[in-house]
């Protein structure tokens, strides 16, 4: 156990110091895919979350429960669902998205949408109702009110974005099924780790895990920095 961990740390340092070209390529690709997915999903989810929060409608509770249930959907199931859609036998075959980074982005967007919508709604509900009433009393329309509340809840929403990014960059089900783990084209951190493990390169796998966490730390520090500033 200890030997493997020490070996993994040595390998991680070696890979970083020597600027291993394959590692750099995989890092850029992983970040491109997961950051794009997080960005796109955020742009979709935060407004939807705002709308769900603002309006009272029949079945609102049920809708929120449904969204929260989808937090638990296994990544492989999301991958399979999208695979059936974009495979050559599927209805969206003509988009040629299978085995492309863009296909993986769509898969990760689908994967993290429920978390982002659900947490946005929760974050907005957490804001005191007085602010909503005050905004309306001051003559704000629906759009202005939602923007005001989102601004109030920005820390919690940023937390949801960080969580969603974490789920996107660490998932392997969509990456394998939609990406196909093609070397130099769709291979990302998690699929490399899974391949190296099945090859028996345990230390290299753990080393890649450390590097993935280090990169996630840097991204999270930047996002935290962003949210900690007024």
């Amino acid at each position: 156990m200890a030997n493997e961990i020490i070996g993994a740390v040595e390998q991680a340092i070696y890979l970083i110091v020597t600027l291993n070209p394959e590692l750099i390529e995989i890092t850029i690709r992983s970040l491109y895919i997961s950051l794009s997915a997080t960005l796109i999903a955020s742009l979709i989810s935060i407004p939807i979350g705002g709308v769900i929060y603002y309006y009272e409608f029949h079945g609102k509770r049920t809708l929120i429960n449904l969204i929260q249930t989808l937090y638990s959907v296994p990544t492989v199931i999301v991958g399979l669902f999208l695979f059936l859609l974009i495979s050559q036998r599927g209805p969206l075959a003509n988009l040629n998205l299978l085995f492309t980074p863009e296909g993986m982005i769509i898969g990760q967007v689908l994967l993290i949408l429920p978390i982002l919508i659900g947490f946005t709604v929760t974050a907005l509900i957490g804001v005191s109702n007085q602010i909503k009433e005050l905004a309306i009393a001051l003559g704000a329309n629906a759009y202005q009110t939602i923007i005001t509340i989102i601004k109030e809840a920005r820390y919690a929403i940023m937390g949801a974005v960080i969580l969603a990014f974490g789920r996107a960059i660490s998932e392997v089900g969509v990456a394998i099924l939609i990406g196909g783990n093609i070397r130099g084209f769709t291979r990302v951190f998690t699929t490399t780790i899974s391949l190296e493990t099945s090859k028996g390169n345990i230390e290299l796998s753990i080393a890649l895990g450390f590097i993935l966490l280090a990169i996630a730390l840097i991204i999270n520090l930047m996002l935290n920095y962003l949210q900690g500033r007024e």
Binding site: L177, G180, N181, I182, F185
Partner: peptide, 8 residues
């Protein structure tokens, strides 16, 4: 030709 090996 760009060979893409899909493994899974």
């Amino acid at each position: 030709v760009d060979v893409q090996v899909v493994s899974g």
